[in-house]
Design a binder for these strands. Sequence first.
DNA 1: GAATAAAGATTATAAGATATAACTATTTTT
DNA 2: AAAAATAGTTATATCTTATAATCTTTATTC
Lengths: 162, 162
Amino acid sequence: MSFASQTTNEQTSGVLDVSDKTLRGFVGYQTKRTFNVIQADLNETLSAFDLRMVSFSVLVMIIDNNGIRQSQIADALSIEAPNLVVALDGLERRDLIIRERLATDRRVWLIQATLAGRRLCEKAVRAVQKHERQILGDTDAQSLVTLMEVLKKIEIAGGSKL
Amino acid sequence: MSFASQTTNEQTSGVLDVSDKTLRGFVGYQTKRTFNVIQADLNETLSAFDLRMVSFSVLVMIIDNNGIRQSQIADALSIEAPNLVVALDGLERRDLIIRERLATDRRVWLIQATLAGRRLCEKAVRAVQKHERQILGDTDAQSLVTLMEVLKKIEIAGGSKL
DNA sequence: GAATAAAGATTATAAGATATAACTATTTTT
DNA sequence: AAAAATAGTTATATCTTATAATCTTTATTC
């Protein structure tokens, strides 16, 4: 038993030491708390490039898949088509990407990155990678591999239920 | 080289195989994708109890810390006070919790769960635990420990930067 | 000890992200 | 040729989280 952290003027109102042990037992809760931290760092990093999480992901997908369809981007990222349109509009306005109509099916737009788009994306990817390394601190390589594997497994296991 | 998945009527528009390997290299991206799956499952589970993620977390915190202050809940969950008020209002309306004024400091409300609140929470916690076990599938205990440890480490490392 | 500042909670509102519904243009199916 | 389906768009709604302003009460300061 300890009286260590009791200040002289401590009002014994509320709870002395707040416990979140039940919540901390949930993988979901811990994952959310961790993601919140990652997201805060990420948004700050991306703000230097005038990108948000979604537009960044979209841009990376375009670089990795030159000439990809909008529907393919939306599928890969699991985002709804209307939200993708908004993201693409923003990237197109900044001349980071171009929409090109497919001749053989005029409903389809193929998306390509411009040179400026590729350059910006490369810088942004490097910045994000750098920040992730910082945030991972001294996490050893094997733990990191396990982390990613288990996360992936959960994603697949859970996703297959819906 | 393989032609396996080429349908007869395949239009060679867009990209044949979409790659998300750059994004999949990011811990942040994988964490988000996994959390999306967990969240979908969780929301479905909690809907049976008329709870959302936030109100569930709040209720659990109250059970684990009887007589906790609102500000202590908000701090512990890293949510803003106004959002907590809304969540508490909902729980109070359903007689799952009660607000009690602190005599020695009339600005403060101490929150307690009612019997109904404790019962509902217990059921909800069990349901969520069951679903998490399902979603984790055959993940071995050691991997799970590593997962939680690394997530926690990232949370702390990243959080200390802000 | 009165004036001022700070703290806890609340209300109202805004911003952000994501989802749904309805529509246009084009292609495919019947 | 008519009907159905697909790709993308527009408009809008919902849900979550954040900010600003207010009220009451307590603490601080001159």
